[in-house]
Design a binder for these strands. Sequence first.
DNA 1: ACCAGTCGGTTCGGTGAATGAACTCAAGGT
DNA 2: ACCTTGAGTTCATTCACCGAACCGACTGGT
Lengths: 179, 179
Amino acid sequence: MGPMALGKDYAQQQCSIARALEVVGERWTLLVVRDAFYGVRRYNDFLVHLGIPRAVLAARLQALVEAGVLDRRRYQESPPRDEYVLTERGLALWPVLRSLGAWGRAEVPGAVPLRHFHHADCGTELGPYGECPSCRVPVPLADVEMRPGAGLDPDPADPVSRALLRPRRLLVPLEHTSS
Amino acid sequence: MGPMALGKDYAQQQCSIARALEVVGERWTLLVVRDAFYGVRRYNDFLVHLGIPRAVLAARLQALVEAGVLDRRRYQESPPRDEYVLTERGLALWPVLRSLGAWGRAEVPGAVPLRHFHHADCGTELGPYGECPSCRVPVPLADVEMRPGAGLDPDPADPVSRALLRPRRLLVPLEHTSS
DNA sequence: ACCAGTCGGTTCGGTGAATGAACTCAAGGT
DNA sequence: ACCTTGAGTTCATTCACCGAACCGACTGGT
């Protein structure tokens, strides 16, 4: 029924993990959410950055809006254009992305880090739970600065990846040179 | 090519989150891993507890073994029977499951908790990152006790769910009345 | 007025994965 | 000899994903 995709939802699973996966467990979904943290807000930016099929992206965005993870809002009339922004509930997914990223990084032993996350106030790199080891406080998302790591392709093809190459705060929208 | 399922892997994603999802991002995979933490080790136990199609379970187990998340080992000859146990790399997925579960629990506002996780040494419920708030140490997985919450069905159909109703340590294998 | 281009989709045919049911094989029990 | 259990495999159907093409509203250029 709901937004869940594959055939049926996780049947009679009595488990909050299964409930979470019904919302964010489909292919591409968590990558869309990740991009939203990085400041991506527009259909076309998700599209070129993820390399996702258009129909799938439209479906995921709609499902995430219905699940209350993203908020869709008009940012201009004529032509009507909407952007997708993380809600409170969406922001609460940050620990999931952190832990997944930490695990994925450890997967490849000799891998060079791709992105670093720092406390903008003091510059220290965040600890495993998104806390600042030197200030000893959990860092609010708006105070997290993302910096490119050495493993990142220095000259990517699409403009979104290029924009994400320079250090930037989380959640700050990508710039779009207005006409 | 590899163990990834859907059509192709996450293309050219330069992202450790995407790398993690290539391993554990498919449908059912994280639920299999969750069950492994709960002490499920055998094909048939996964099968009845998850309600997963047989072919899919076989494929997931094989993929997880190839990815180094599970270890397959013979526990009896004649008839040859194997069990699937979490490796070091698999155990490192615990924070992912914790954070997903925490998010899924918060999804439904009025929901009664389904399972609690306590520090076996002192009885205190674990904090959000699997640490013990009173002992102020990260609790090793073997010292985590899982207790049923009020939201859990008190009389489930399958024997695995029934076995998981009583308080038990993580990773301890389910009992099987040997012949 | 005309044309090209952008943005945010929808439609469509082909492919491949998930599903549930049936079947296999080996061993044990009775 | 027959039934059962565990751990799969095979198979037909269904369904989701994929890529490319198409569409509609607008905008900017000439």
